[in-house]
Computed example of a mutant assay.
Amino acid sequence: MSKGRILICDSSEYIRTNIKKLLLKRSFQVYEATNGLEALRLARSIYPELVILDLNLWGMNSIEVGKIIEKDNISTVIYMTSKVDAVFLNEIEKMKLYAYIKKPIIGENLYQIIDFALINSNKINNLKRKVNDLEIEINSRKNIDKAKRMLMKKLNITEEESYSIIRRESMNRCISIEKVAQEIIEKNSKSI
């Protein structure tokens, strides 16, 4: 059973083959690309759990490739490099995951960084989903409050009576309270 998809992008067939062998031992599905553009095309078609990019790719700049992959929510990126300098570290600080592996690639180091990346990427994605859900909930509550205020003003009633009207309409029509609130807002905004 596969543990997930990993895309390796390195111009060197030798390095790709060695990393692929290591990943296959851990039951990953492995995909390969030789340059940045090919990596982007492949990543957009398979949505891998992880993309391992060589810092010195042919074609597109690998930092830019990684930024596109993360910005488009395609995957998480780990860089491979033989030399770590301040410019590189500054660039990857802006990435979703501050992770890289030094060449030459040693199996145990590769496994550790992959485990780290996958676990933390999942945590980050779960937090993003929770934030998104909370934003939706907050907007929904704002709309309900706005609809209540509109009804209170229009009908000269209390907040509880206003909410009761919205809730009753929701139950009678079998639609969400949020939908009723949105309809009230739209209807009352047009009449203003």
Rank of each mutant, 00 (worst) to 15 (best):
18 N>C: 07
143 N>G: 13
20 K>H: 09
51 V>K: 09
170 S>I: 05
127 L>C: 04
106 I>K: 13
92 I>F: 08
83 K>D: 06
101 I>E: 00
141 R>Y: 10
141 R>G: 10
4 G>Q: 04
36 G>Q: 04
105 I>P: 08
49 E>C: 12
188 N>L: 10
155 L>R: 14
131 V>M: 15
34 T>P: 00
166 I>L: 10
40 L>S: 07
157 I>A: 02
117 A>Y: 08
133 D>K: 10
175 I>V: 08
39 A>L: 01
13 E>F: 14
13 E>G: 13
124 I>R: 13
15 I>C: 07
173 R>G: 00
76 T>I: 15
52 I>R: 01
79 Y>H: 07
116 F>N: 11
181 A>I: 01
43 A>N: 09
180 V>A: 03
105 I>D: 04
104 P>V: 10
172 N>L: 13
99 A>M: 12
87 V>I: 15
106 I>E: 14
183 E>C: 01
17 T>N: 14
178 E>M: 06
76 T>W: 05
20 K>Y: 01
35 N>P: 00
188 N>Q: 14
186 E>R: 07
176 S>Y: 05
8 I>K: 03
115 D>N: 11
54 D>S: 09
34 T>A: 13
165 I>A: 02
65 V>N: 01
132 N>D: 12
94 K>D: 10
154 K>C: 09
112 Q>W: 12
189 S>G: 06
94 K>H: 12
